[in-house]
């Protein structure tokens, strides 16, 4: 009885170890990145009434991105998470952001100038493809779920 319990505990630790290793691998393993040839992309984003238009922008890794921020009502800003760069615009005076999209994943951009009540939630999204961080997180989630099930399976 004690021997069986010991063997089971050993198997559980083994599964736990393998799961953690696979999760770490899914999240951190270097992967070859292939995709379209880098190009310069000019994107106009209109900011008005607590929203960016378009709300989601997709580019490829390596692209040079030029964002032209236009405001249709009051002064707005655009701060890009992850890249930590910003610009601002007011009606008739657009702002510009130029950067190389050298990090893949999804990055929120948010208004950087208080513009009213919904200002903290004035958020858009830049997706730099291939969106490996999301794929890695999903893979890690599925591995963690299967692994946890295996560890506690009786």
């Amino acid at each position: 009885m004690i021997g069986t319990q010991f063997a089971r505990r050993k198997t559980q630790w083994l599964f736990a170890g393998v799961t953690m290793a696979l999760v770490a691998l899914a999240l951190l393993a270097p992967l070859p990145v292939t995709g379209a040839a880098p190009q310069e992309r000019h994107i106009t984003i209109s900011a008005h009434t607590f929203a960016f238009e378009p709300g989601t922008v997709r580019v490829n890794r390596g692209d040079t991105v030029v964002i032209n921020l236009e405001s249709a009502d009051v002064m707005h800003g655009l701060y890009l998470d992850g890249y930590e760069i910003s610009t601002r615009a007011e009606p008739g005076q657009p702002g510009e952001l130029r950067f190389v999209a050298d990090r893949d994943g999804a990055f929120h951009f948010r208004c950087a100038v208080p513009c009213g009540n919904l200002h903290p939630f004035m958020i858009g999204k830049l997706i730099v493809e291939p969106n490996l961080p999301w794929l890695r997180a999903v893979a890690a989630t599925l591995i963690a779920a299967v692994g946890a099930g295996a560890v506690f399976w009786k």
């Binding site: 999760v23 999240l27 701060y79 998470d81 992850g82 890249y83 930590e84 994943g105 999804a106 929120h108 961080p133 997180a137 890690a140 989630t141 963690a144 779920a145 692994g147 946890a148 099930g149 560890v151 506690f152 399976w153 009786k154």
Partner: peptide
Amino acid sequence: SGVIPYLQVPVLLVGLIVAVALAMR
């Protein structure tokens, strides 16, 4: 702002692992 997803993912994974363990239990 640049690391929030890297904080969210481990938190969600820990929550999920405990949840699956509880489902088994």
